[in-house]
Computed example of a mutant assay.
Amino acid sequence: MQNNDPHAPDPAQDGAADSAIQAELDALGVQLATMEAELAQARETVLREKAEIENQRRRMQRDVDQARRFANEKLLAELLPVYDGIALGLTNEAADAKTLREGLQMSLDQLKKVTEANGLTMVDPLHQPFNPEHHQAISSVESNEHAPNTVVAVVQKGFVLNDRLLRPALVAVVRDH
């Protein structure tokens, strides 16, 4: 008996449709496997990159710590001869005041040379206008010889390190009349 119903499914067509669906499912399965492999590779790459960044951060921190610990090494090595000169002068018990003074002057000159080579400059503002950025007035005096706000005495010299004030000069200034 033959089914003449035009709406009835054709077994041959059902098999072809099932084959097409199966082929599409197989293709999607292959595509899914490829995507999962790419995702696993991407995860592995991210983990490796993250580990490399962490290693770089640790190396950088170690380098910064080393730089801090030994930042003054060059300066201190340059100061050792000054130290040696002063220590040697103090061991000379037979030296008179003039000899000690000359030795101290040589040590001071050597110290100035080292500090200037490392960016330290002295602020000695005697007879210059008062500058509140580099000077600290500790007294004011009357004077007919100097203009107001002129430094007439330096109690303690100031210092600038590479254009940054390290210590202001302590000064006496002529007050306004």
Rank of each mutant, 00 (worst) to 15 (best):
K50P: 02
L161G: 01
L170A: 12
N55V: 08
R59P: 14
I138E: 07
A147P: 07
A71S: 11
R62Y: 14
Y83H: 12
M106N: 13
A8G: 06
Q61Y: 10
R175A: 14
A16V: 00
L111R: 04
A94D: 11
R167K: 14
L75A: 02
A117Y: 01
H127L: 14
V46H: 08
Q136C: 06
S139R: 09
A97K: 15
L161P: 01
L104S: 12
R164Q: 15
L79Y: 03
E52D: 11
V151M: 07
S143N: 03
A40V: 01
R43K: 07
N4W: 05
K112E: 10
P168A: 15
K113G: 01
H134W: 08
T121A: 06
E54L: 11
P125R: 00
V154G: 06
L170H: 14
N118A: 11
A37H: 00
A147S: 06
G103W: 11
A23E: 10
E52Q: 10
L108N: 11
R62T: 15
N131L: 02
E142I: 05
V64R: 13
M122T: 12
R101C: 07
R62Q: 15
L170R: 13
L120S: 09
R48A: 09
A87E: 07
E36W: 01
A8S: 11
Q110C: 09
A20R: 08
A67M: 13
N131M: 05
P6N: 04
L126D: 10
A37M: 00
A153D: 14
D18E: 09
K112H: 12
T150E: 04
E38A: 00
V173Y: 13
V123E: 01
R68N: 10
